[in-house]
Amino acid sequence: MISFDSVSKRYPGNREALSRVTFSVDNGEMIFITGHSGAGKSTLLKLIPAIERPTSGSVVVQGQNISAMKASALPYLRRSIGVVFQDQKLLHDRNVYENVMLPLAFSDHAPKEAARRARAALDKVGLLDRELSHPIQLSGGEQQRLAIARAVVNRPSILIADEPTANLDDDSARIVMEIFLSFHQVGVTILLASHDQAMMRRYGGRVFALAGGKLTERPAEAAA
């Protein structure tokens, strides 16, 4: 489903974020990516929906080589990948329902079907009763759940999240992780970047550690 082959990423100034990273992820897997701040976790995740392009090597997602993909084809790839950003990127001038409707606006769903999907996604993350609230009126945990609802409303086969539980209290973090787990249980491939070693032990899955742009795989038990 996802395969990185000797992928390097250099930013201007010759700073190397990733160095010859190679790994692959099968359908329905749950992957944790850990590492210190600046280790390259966000860069790695951004390569999957082609928000960033590799400097060298190849990234293949759902059989498509991202490195060689035309810009006009990217929107269709991105619709099949749900992304929960570190800063959530919610639209604060729109209410909860309108935020979740955004990805459905440019898909081909009929209005009734789009509304049904949006409410189902909000129901899934427990925000159906807050659909008329604005993001600013939500707690940090609720905002994160809203970001997840928006990421999954198009029913993606891949869900990636960058530090989804950072800045959340334990209860909110647990609720957010339970939501990811429920998507994993129905076959969605999940990649999560996180610092939280205890959480990785609790939820299992493969763990990739990034340090100095190099990637190594460790069993979850050894992640501590």
Partner: peptide
């Protein structure tokens, strides 16, 4: 700008 950036991230085409 923010709305356009988020829309591109979520899969909006240039035409849209």
């Amino acid at each position: 700008r923010d709305e356009i950036e988020v829309s591109k991230l979520l899969g909006a085409t240039d035409g849209y």
